[in-house]
Design a protein around this nucleic acid. Structure first.
Lengths: 221, 221
DNA sequence: TAGCTTAAGTGACAATGTCACTGAAGGCAT
DNA sequence: ATGCCTTCAGTGACATTGTCACTTAAGCTA
């Protein structure tokens, strides 16, 4: 495998001394995952630790009844701590990570992780910070699900997903899975948004026609 | 302040060499918090890291509209990583910790924490494990709130709170805050449980009359 | 025992979730 | 093009949960 210096990419590794970085590029494997493939899941618990070099991973949790909710997304430069958590806690969970784009990731064997965490402050702080961000992400999810109105949450999510774009290519079912609700509910709310001329719809595509007003709804809580 | 050896109590410190432990008992402060007092909160972000020697802390999140949900409880021997998370992530959140009993805790200044995390594998692993447990706790909360029925969740919670007891001393409002719902909802469900002769009620007290059947409901999902 | 404070009950309604469908769009094979 | 076929979206009836505005009741305390 070609060695390239991915260590520039991570806050936790860019600051490391050259020797440590060289050792890292030698020990860690670089893997490629195709868009749509599962990165990890209940049936597919990784043995190693995971750093996302390029692409985006969607982490979601699904219920027994088949509904699903997106917990957060891991972006390039971040570590996927949920896999780490599972290795450490050795507990069951039913979250899975799906590559939302083609993904390039760094897989670091546990011994190398341990050594790095022991020896390098920058790396250790990076990992702690990654954990913290996820904890706080999850606090937000709990808050939204427990206390949020779904029209507000949907408006928010539409804007997030369509940031800088004129349209979003997602089905009602996919949006329902974003928010952990049912397709029919999304259809109803989108219909309402349509009647209020905030969006227009066609099969699998939602087009923004009034982002500011949508933003007003998103922030009305 | 009297120095006593609390280091026995924590998985992350019991295994440390005597020198490190001695240093710890010298650097860390032991604090006492009275039942009902706030341990941390949005207005009260601690500067230091927190290990629970004795007692129990209830960590909950509240909404703008005044509703509240219990996220998890920190038991003796565990670390309260949410405070840690906040220090590290320096992000806003609206969770708070309340002492559910009188509490004795160890407060470790950040520099001491850093040194220990760097030098001692056992300590570092302990902290990582504590983070992981909380992440997984929160996954469970998300699952419950997003996908769970409230009768099931209430039955579950009643059994958890009343483990080994014949009755629970909690108001409907307090139970509502456990599950992140409204008092009226709890009243309705408890009334139903009462009609089915699973519990009996009086002001502020719920008495079990049929735990096995309640357990059946709790596990029926 | 009267008054006060907090806990719990109630009914009407709104929001969200579920179910069992129907209809409609677009791809594909002939 | 025409007619399948699969997937996506719409619909109405109903169940569950949340909200609101109140009433009633319990237990304390003066």
């Amino acid at each position: 495998m070609t060695q390239f210096d991915w260590t520039e990419r991570f806050a936790g590794t860019a600051a490391l001394p050259a020797a440590a970085r060289k050792r890292l590029t030698a020990t860690a494997r670089v893997i490629h995952i195709k868009r749509g493939d599962q990165v990890f899941g209940p049936m597919n618990v990784p043995e190693s630790l995971f750093f996302l070099y390029d692409g985006r991973i969607r982490v979601s949790q699904s219920s027994d009844s088949g509904r699903e909710i997106v917990l957060y997304r891991v972006e390039a430069g971040d570590s996927c701590v949920l896999t780490t958590a599972c290795i450490l806690a050795e507990e069951a969970y039913n979250a899975e990570g799906i590559a939302e784009t083609d993904v390039t990731a760094i897989v670091l064997p546990k011994p190398a992780f341990d050594r790095l965490a022991a020896e390098e402050d920058a790396f250790r702080n990076f990992v702690f910070a990654a954990y913290s961000r996820r904890l706080i992400d999850l606090l937000r999810v709990v808050d939204d699900v427990a206390f949020g109105r779904i029209d507000v949450r949907l408006a928010e999510r539409l804007l997030m997903l369509g940031d800088g774009l004129k349209e979003i290519r997602k089905t009602h079912q996919e949006l329902a899975s974003e928010l952990g609700t049912a397709r029919e509910v999304i259809s109803r709310v989108l219909n309402d948004f349509h009647k209020r001329e905030l969006i227009s719809q066609s099969r699998g595509i939602i087009t923004f026609t009034n982002k500011p007003e949508l933003a007003a709804i998103a922030h009305s809580a």
